[in-house]
Simulated assay, not measured.
Amino acid sequence: MRIIGLTGSIGMGKSTTAAMFREAGIPVYDADAAVHDLYDQGGAAVGPVGDAFPGVVKDGRVDREALRQRVLGQPDELKRLNAIVHPLVGLDRVGFLKQAEADGADWVVFDVPLLFETGGHANVDAVVVVSAPPEMQRERVLARPGMTPERLDAILAQQMADAEKRARAHYVVDTGKGLEPARAQVKAIIANLRASAG
């Protein structure tokens, strides 16, 4: 079984592109969704995150906004958080891989926002970067509830530049031209990967 790493900066259309891989029959592991579950009531991260960052656990779950305020622009705090969460996500991902293997999947997708930033690209067979023109990216993100230009800039400061991601990718999906062209690009990538894998 081979692994596709799917990544892209905020607002590039990565979640939509991940859904296209899923529609094509390739299992997708969503790292963000896994973290969401870990932070929810009964999640394995609630206790250790609450101990490390007092006050961020409310009603038995991690308050993501309160946690974000604690770590945004604080590299050491972010490192401390990642040291708690990344191993838990890793365990969850092992379970996903076992299930995909049992189901007979030949390829799987790891949907990881910070794939390059965390060094995860070294553990996949191919990297697909989702991209769009910067003005479209800003327009999409600023349309989200509660988003501000300052918050967007702070998020982008933690992410590798889109141009560098594209330069390091095996494949790029351009979502700036609409859904159907993006879907066609995904199908072409899958066909190419399967052909090159023999």
Rank of each mutant, 00 (worst) to 15 (best):
A102T: 07
L115D: 03
V112F: 10
L142K: 05
V141P: 03
A163G: 11
I155Q: 08
G95N: 03
V124E: 04
A143F: 01
M136R: 12
L142V: 06
F116D: 05
V128D: 04
R140T: 07
A154K: 11
Q99N: 12
H121V: 07
T148M: 10
F110P: 04
D125P: 07
R138K: 15
G95E: 09
N123F: 14
R140A: 06
V130W: 02
L142M: 10
D162T: 08
D111S: 09
D106Y: 06
Q159W: 05
R138Q: 13
D111C: 03
L97F: 14
L114Y: 08
E101D: 14
T148A: 10
R138V: 12
V108I: 15
E150W: 07
A157F: 09
V109H: 04
Q99K: 15
V112W: 00
E117S: 00
Q99P: 07
T148W: 11
K98W: 12
R144P: 05
Q137T: 02
L156K: 08
A161P: 09
P149F: 12
M147D: 00
H121F: 11
L142N: 12
L97N: 10
F116T: 04
M160Q: 10
P133W: 10
L115P: 07
V141I: 01
T148S: 13
K98L: 15
E139N: 13
M160N: 01
Q137D: 01
P133A: 15
E150T: 13
V128H: 02
E164C: 05
M147E: 05
V112C: 02
Q158I: 11
R151L: 15
A161F: 09
D106Q: 14
S131N: 04
P149K: 09
F110T: 01
A143D: 11
V124C: 04
F116A: 07
L142R: 02
K165D: 11
A126C: 11
W107S: 04
A163F: 10
A126Q: 00
Q158K: 13
F116C: 03
R144Y: 00
L114Q: 06
G120M: 11
E139C: 10
A105C: 08
P113D: 00
A102F: 06
G104L: 02
A163I: 08
Q158N: 13
G95T: 03
M160S: 02
S131K: 00
A126S: 13
R166S: 11
P134L: 09
L97P: 02
